[in-house]
Amino acid sequence: MGSVAGDQVLCVLADTLLQKNWMLTTAESCTGGAIAKACTDLAGSSAWFERGFVTYSNEAKQDMLGVPAAILAEYGAVSEAVTAAMATGALLHSRAQVAVSVSGIAGPGGGTITKPVGMVCFGWAAQDGKVRTTTQYFQGDREAVRYQAVQYALQGVLQMLAD
């Protein structure tokens, strides 16, 4: 997927958020703020992008987003349980109406049999209480995994808004 496709998704996302009068917040781990950067690269994004949290450590997930230590201990940072808590926490700690979260293993190291490099968990939450999660397995190097995660995260926000 090239940048043109990514730009189209962002433009549609921006228009949809503006029509709903909603703001977006992000809670990112393995993408390191790349979702927030993609959003704020678009001129006029201050009308629909509220804030971004980069919570790389477990402590940051707990301190900034209120992710319970018990969930981190039971499931690990790379899990749908944690991305659900990250997304809902981002909503609670912002003025946004919709949130996206991501936690994964971008590589090249850090993978295991059960959580291989390229595994990325996503969470989306909306002010109406709707929460969605999913896990994807991306191919490629660290940069490729992170790029695909950003695109997938943004597509997921659009799907949340459409439903």
Rank of each mutant, 00 (worst) to 15 (best):
Trp48His: 06
Gln127Val: 05
Cys121Lys: 01
Ala125Gly: 14
Ala47Ser: 05
Glu80Tyr: 00
Val102Asn: 00
Val100Met: 10
Phe49Val: 06
Pro116Asn: 04
Ser45Tyr: 02
Ala70Phe: 04
Phe53Thr: 12
Gly110Asn: 03
Pro116Thr: 12
Lys115Arg: 15
Asp128Asn: 15
Ala69Gln: 03
Tyr56Trp: 05
Ser103Phe: 06
Gly104Asp: 03
Thr114Asp: 14
Ala47Asn: 11
Val100Tyr: 10
Val120Ser: 11
Pro116Cys: 11
Lys115Asn: 08
Thr83Cys: 00
Asp63His: 11
Lys115Val: 10
Val98Leu: 06
Val82Pro: 01
Phe49Arg: 03
Ala60Glu: 11
Ser94Thr: 07
Val54Asp: 02
Gly104Arg: 15
Gly123His: 10
Ser94Ala: 09
Arg51Asn: 13
Ala60Gly: 13
Val102Glu: 00
Pro108Asp: 01
Leu92Trp: 03
Thr83Pro: 00
Ala85Glu: 13
Leu65Ile: 08
Gly109Ile: 09
Glu80Arg: 15
Val98Ile: 15
Ala99Gly: 04
Gln127His: 15
Val102Trp: 11
Ala126Glu: 10
Glu50Met: 09
Ser57Ala: 10
Met86Val: 04
Gly111Ser: 05
Asp63Gly: 00
Gly107Glu: 12
Ile71Thr: 13
Gly52Tyr: 02
Met64Ser: 04
His93Gly: 01
Thr55Trp: 07
Ala73Glu: 15
Asp63Ala: 05
Ser101Glu: 12
Val120Gly: 03
Phe49Tyr: 07
Ala90His: 03
Ser79Asp: 00
Gln127Arg: 09
Val67Cys: 04
Ile105Ala: 08
Ala125Tyr: 12
Arg95Tyr: 01
Lys115Pro: 00
Ser101Gln: 09
Ala90Ser: 04
Gln97Asp: 11
Met86Cys: 06
Lys115Ser: 14
Ala96Gln: 05
Lys61Glu: 01
Val67Met: 14
Tyr75Met: 00
Ser57Asn: 10
Asn58Gln: 14
Ala125Met: 14
Met64Tyr: 13
His93Trp: 05
Tyr56Thr: 10
Gln62Trp: 14
Tyr56Pro: 01
Ser57Gln: 02
Thr114Arg: 07
Ala85His: 04
Gln62Ser: 08
Gly104Pro: 11
Ser79Gln: 13
Val67Thr: 07
Thr83Gly: 00
Ser46Leu: 11
Ala84Pro: 01
Val100Asn: 02
Gly66Ala: 12
Pro116His: 03
Lys115Phe: 01
Ser46Met: 06
Leu91Thr: 07
Phe49Ala: 00
Ala73Val: 12
Ser94Val: 10
Ala106Phe: 05
Val117Ala: 06
Ala73Asn: 09
Gly118Met: 15
Ala70Trp: 05
Gly110Met: 03
Gln62Pro: 00
Arg95Ser: 12
Glu74Asp: 14
